[in-house]
Write a protein that binds this DNA or RNA. Sequence first.
DNA 1: TATGAATGAGTCTTCATTCAT
DNA 2: TATGAATGAAGACTCATTCAT
Lengths: 193, 193, 193, 193
Amino acid sequence: MRTKDENKLMAIFDATVSLTAKVGIAGLKMSLIAKEAEIAAGTIYLYYKNKKDLLNAVYTNLKSEGIFSVIGKIEHLPIQVQLFRLWEVAFEYHVANINKSVFIEQFELSPMISSENKVMEEDSMSYLHKTLEEAKKRGIVKPIDNHIIMSLILGFMKHLAAQATKDSLDTSEDVKHLCYSMCWNAIRENNNE
Amino acid sequence: MRTKDENKLMAIFDATVSLTAKVGIAGLKMSLIAKEAEIAAGTIYLYYKNKKDLLNAVYTNLKSEGIFSVIGKIEHLPIQVQLFRLWEVAFEYHVANINKSVFIEQFELSPMISSENKVMEEDSMSYLHKTLEEAKKRGIVKPIDNHIIMSLILGFMKHLAAQATKDSLDTSEDVKHLCYSMCWNAIRENNNE
Amino acid sequence: MRTKDENKLMAIFDATVSLTAKVGIAGLKMSLIAKEAEIAAGTIYLYYKNKKDLLNAVYTNLKSEGIFSVIGKIEHLPIQVQLFRLWEVAFEYHVANINKSVFIEQFELSPMISSENKVMEEDSMSYLHKTLEEAKKRGIVKPIDNHIIMSLILGFMKHLAAQATKDSLDTSEDVKHLCYSMCWNAIRENNNE
Amino acid sequence: MRTKDENKLMAIFDATVSLTAKVGIAGLKMSLIAKEAEIAAGTIYLYYKNKKDLLNAVYTNLKSEGIFSVIGKIEHLPIQVQLFRLWEVAFEYHVANINKSVFIEQFELSPMISSENKVMEEDSMSYLHKTLEEAKKRGIVKPIDNHIIMSLILGFMKHLAAQATKDSLDTSEDVKHLCYSMCWNAIRENNNE
DNA sequence: TATGAATGAGTCTTCATTCAT
DNA sequence: TATGAATGAAGACTCATTCAT
């Protein structure tokens, strides 16, 4: 492995993601990416066949990046605690990587997305999916369609993360607990109303 | 003489919004807009100075379009019912107008947004804002920062609306009630946990 | 003859000439001509087949307009006086009609000039031409090629007229006499040096 | 890497001037300039921001190009001889560079001229200006306003140069002497008439 | 491999001309 | 006949990609 090359590849990758968050997919120019990555425009073509290829490679990479890969063993914990850990990890990922979320969002609607990527299913959420199913089976969480539950959790999370970035909102431990408890109240069984 | 056709303005407007949802802001070409609006490319320039102007006009218009303008008098209703009505109207708007949401999202990050529009504050939500404050004052809703509450409501709503369009999810009356109750459980006081 | 039409024709003609002097042939737009002539753009096409036709018609007209048509009988006068009258008339024409000179100059180099007009010979000067030949024959004027003499006279005249317009130079009777005497000294026989 | 080619700048410059003389400012297209300069259309934009900039740069350059910069020391010569040298140099410049004169003339009336260039004063003539003043002071040249003298000299010169190009007139040493003597007779003191 | 000047296909935009009124 | 909105061909300009160094 040539370290030099790996660095350039990484630089191009990072430049692409962070620039998209700055100028949008419509403002993303090869020359800009090159400048951000501190290389020459022509150099990008030593690593990627063309712009479409570059963007699709970045996208594939981001999509297959497991959000929960950092999480340790948690199966032994009470399911409610498991859910909190998952939520927390996902939230922290979103706050720390809004650029990635933005890139994904922008790219998915762009004309450059390949047909393979168009059908690509986000699977980093399957872990959460399974845990929710388990919780429903045990009667801890209401038997709501997972699409809806995950819309609540992810929609809330992404929106908040976006706000957090834009308006530099506070994302302290307290806020995280509060937000999680909101989600929890929304989906848990027995709100005894 | 042919009289200047107000419909054309509308057609351009609609074409711009729906095309953006179809091909993204990066794929939005004047010639495409013209074709979608069933006019000649040059005609657009009778109504808008250039592409940037067109997009900014569409954006301004969408942003100032009051989501809640359709709502009747509701101040006399119990605040919980008011909140449901607001939620319902917003949700229905989002489902019916995802294209608009998509356009706004895409455009806000594009290099074509004018500096005036960059600072534009969405004010169609002030109604919801006020009602939430009132509810908090009365102790019906938890004293949570409105940014967070609205992130929950809007994030959830937008995500669900997007899903609904993409995967043609069901958005029946039941689903609406369910989703609203989830939101409500998340924010109401007295979940007696 | 419909007076109405004649007026419009004239208005278009005048607008074309004066606009060219204002914005140059490169800035001459049909819409501008229409506005200057206070008619609608489409109306021009009732009188001229297209832009090229209009400009060529204006050009032909200007070129065949005899500068000396206003001059009375002068053959009986001494040739020196004849020459002065010719010079004076030409000068006054140029000062009063710089726009026309400008149009001719600009149009002759434009891609819109027709091949017929390209070969068109300015014949309004033939009168001057003949008189000069006569003067040379009589030994009053030096036997210099008419091209050169007329370059002196016309070049000087046009340049001065252009200056006069631009810097609003004085063109009093005195100045005219001075300028003419300069020309005269340049071409007359017997400067006994 | 290909090094930025100074020749290209020159080629664009030359192409612009000579094309204007060929097709007029109204026929001047970026694609034509590129073809004439034997480069790609896009390449022009590496050197100039846009068409307006290119033309104004060419203009500024031409205007500040000192016609008399080639002239050697002549102050020690009799003023009459100095004047002849100046005239000769100017004439030769005009004959050799009609394209430049044509460009200047065409451009000054075009809508693309910048406001800075609009007020730009031709200063390459200040040398001639000074010499004329000196000659008038010494009583060699008639005390005529310099505007007028220079109109005679320049108007004559430009007209003749234009004729020379169009009708391939002879511009031999003899012709130059003849023309200069005509100018001289027009302005010198003591024509003892 | 790395560079960035050069290229030219593809957009945006203008404006002569048409056409419905 | 007169209008000016609408058209679309043509020209300006951008930017992904190539290529000489």
